[in-house]
């Protein structure tokens, strides 16, 4: 009943519906007071590409939570695992001497190879984790949090065991080290790739969730598992699938971030988990659209503030999170 009244309220008051968007966009034009247009545009492109990378990791987190009601704190570990998987593929290509001479098209192909390997590795690890550990703790939030903290610990230690404890330099395909200039704005190719990948994955997720039978089953499972089970669907396999998909997204995000920073280290997951958590909290747990918008907000504000007041960058994200939580305790797109 609650949702009914809410729906009708927004329908009858269109201004309120758009007010948030107008204020939001206005806020993002605010930095223009302090900087010239070129800098602003450069920072905006960089911010959106950072946002897309964060979206990759946040979307997996929110997907797993949305369907399975599991807050997977091992997500950061899947992210780091994916980074190492992608790093290994790039390293092999580098040993063959293909990385330094790659054209843009070849670079894209190598990136696809690395992302594919990371996605498969992350998805596989996700299936294992779900089947061995997570399925034993459905329905108990506290145990889920604790058990996923443990899993994350195990994965990170395994990373250290396999690849060593030190930072490693990630070989970046030559084609991505170039940039092009539009309106005086210096844009690296890899940023464009990141933005493109983020939007593509957002579109695919939206299509699957909204248009396909699988999406209907998934959304129905979020709302009422009993009906879905009694209709004849094996929901435990659907859970495994979603968990694997979420983990694969984290792993893909990990490889992208590894190339972005040109480095991997075993603890890298935790640094980005904080971004992902902020994004998911801002966007609302369980909403893919929410984490898309949240990721753009976090990416942009982080870049603007990092340019103006470097030390405040992370603090500003916390402030945004706190303000949004005070106005909307369930996040921008959160549901009951």
């Amino acid at each position: 009943m609650k949702t009914d009244t809410l729906k009708f309220q927004t329908r009858n008051r269109p201004f309120q519906q758009y007010a948030g968007w107008i204020i939001g966009i206005g806020l993002f034009l605010l930095p223009l007071i302090q900087m010239d247009l070129t800098t602003y545009l450069t920072l905006t492109v960089a911010g959106i590409s950072l946002g897309m990378l964060i979206f990759l990791i946040a979307s997996g987190l929110t997907l797993i939570f949305g369907l399975m009601d599991v807050l997977n704190l091992a997500h950061a570990a899947f992210f780091a695992f994916g980074a190492y998987a992608g790093f290994t593929v790039l390293n092999l290509l580098n040993n063959a001497g293909w990385i330094d001479t790659a054209s843009l098209a070849q670079s894209l192909f190598y990136l696809a190879l690395a992302l594919g390997a990371a996605g498969l590795a992350g998805g596989g690890l996700g299936i294992l984790t779900e089947k061995i550990v997570i399925k034993r703790v459905y329905g108990n939030h506290l145990m889920q949090l604790l058990v996923t903290v443990g899993v994350s610990f195990v994965i990170v230690e395994l990373l250290k065991m396999i690849w060593g404890v030190n930072d490693e330099v990630v070989p970046v395909p030559m084609g991505f080290q170039d940039a092009f200039i539009i309106f005086g704005v210096f844009i690296e190719y890899f940023r464009v790739v990141a933005i493109f990948l983020g939007i593509t994955i957002f579109a695919i997720l939206q299509y699957i969730l909204k248009q396909t039978k699988l999406g209907i089953i998934v959304r129905a499972g979020v709302e009422n598992q009993e009906i879905v089970k009694a209709t004849g669907y094996n929901i435990s396999w659907i859970f495994t699938l979603v968990f694997a998909a979420g983990s694969a997204l984290a792993a893909i995000g990990g490889t992208m971030m590894a190339i972005f920073n040109q480095a991997v280290d075993p603890g890298m997951g935790n640094q980005f988990l904080i971004f992902a958590l902020i994004v998911v909290i801002i966007g609302g747990l369980g909403s893919v659209t929410g984490s898309f918008v949240g990721a753009v907000i976090v990416g942009l504000s982080f870049n603007y503030v990092a340019f103006l007041w470097p030390k405040m960058a992370l603090g500003v994200n916390f402030m945004i999170m706190a303000i949004i939580l005070l106005i909307r305790p369930k996040g921008l797109f959160g549901k009951d």
């Binding site: 807050l71 704190l73 939030h141 949090l145 935790n270 640094q271 988990l273 904080i274 958590l277 902020i278 998911v280 909290i281 992370l314 603090g315 916390f318 999170m321 939580l325």
Partner: peptide, 10 residues
């Protein structure tokens, strides 16, 4: 839990 985790990382 998420909020406090983010705070702790911060």
């Amino acid at each position: 839990a998420m909020l406090t985790l983010a705070l702790a990382e911060f």
